[in-house]
């Protein structure tokens, strides 16, 4: 594992910790998209089915379990927690997730390495992760004055993707025969989706203003 991959994973971990901290400390999930969190849970469950039959390292196993449990925990907070659930604004979080999940499944059934259940589900998770942030970005755009922690959460999540791009470039240069086109193309699209957000996040940070995205 190279430094970019590790930094990427840590940024991903940190983003989730920031999100849980925001929800737990403010007892509010204002500005957090339940749809995106549900998509992430679906991404993690379909990708990490290999927990049941293959072992890579203790590190990988721990991280996979953490991602599954933490997204489950966020969903539980938003749906079930007595006070947090009251702050969820379902009227704003209206993205149709089937419009994302169905095309991803059709693509996974068409473009994959192996037509097996686990391989198709793994490919589906790669495609779905690329677009899972969209409901969250749409919700942020509808929210005037995004709170700092929610902004930081999305920024860290995008940062994790950018570090993975560097990880792949590093691996291409150092590992002969290393290639994974499905992951590279999906990952590049995923990172590109954050460009606009990055621009406004950095702008508001430099001007010392609260983040608000133009609609």
């Amino acid at each position: 594992m190279n430094i970019f991959r590790f930094a990427g994973d840590m940024t991903h971990l940190l983003s989730i910790i920031v999100l849980l901290l925001k929800i737990n400390a403010t007892k509010s999930c204002a500005g957090v998209s339940l749809k995106t969190q549900e998509l992430y849970l679906l991404v993690f469950v379909t990708r990490y089915l290999d927990l049941l039959y293959s072992y890579i390292s203790l590190y990988n196993t721990f991280m996979k379990l953490f991602f599954i449990c933490s997204s489950g925990c966020v969903i539980w907070y938003i749906r079930e927690h007595k006070t947090v659930s009251q702050t969820y604004d379902s009227a704003q979080d209206t993205f149709r997730v089937l419009f994302l999940a169905c095309p991803c499944m059709i693509l996974a059934l068409t473009v994959n390495h192996d037509f097996t259940v686990t391989e198709v589900l793994w490919t589906f998770s790669i495609y779905l992760e690329a677009v899972a942030i969209l409901p969250q970005l749409v919700l942020l755009q509808r929210t005037k004055n995004v709170d700092t922690l929610t902004g930081n959460y999305v920024f860290l999540l995008g940062g994790y993707r950018a570090l993975y791009l560097l990880n792949w470039i590093y691996r291409i240069l150092t590992e002969p025969g290393y290639r994974q086109w499905i992951v590279w193309i999906s990952g590049t699209i995923q990172t590109a989706i954050y460009c606009d957000f990055f621009y406004y996040y950095i702008k508001s940070w430099r001007n010392n203003e609260r983040l608000s995205l133009p609609s």
Binding site: D9, I56, N60, Y178, R179, Q180, V183
Partner: peptide, 10 residues
């Protein structure tokens, strides 16, 4: 086989 290595990432 190289494609399988992709699964060492998260």
């Amino acid at each position: 086989a190289a494609e399988e290595d992709a699964k060492d990432e998260l």
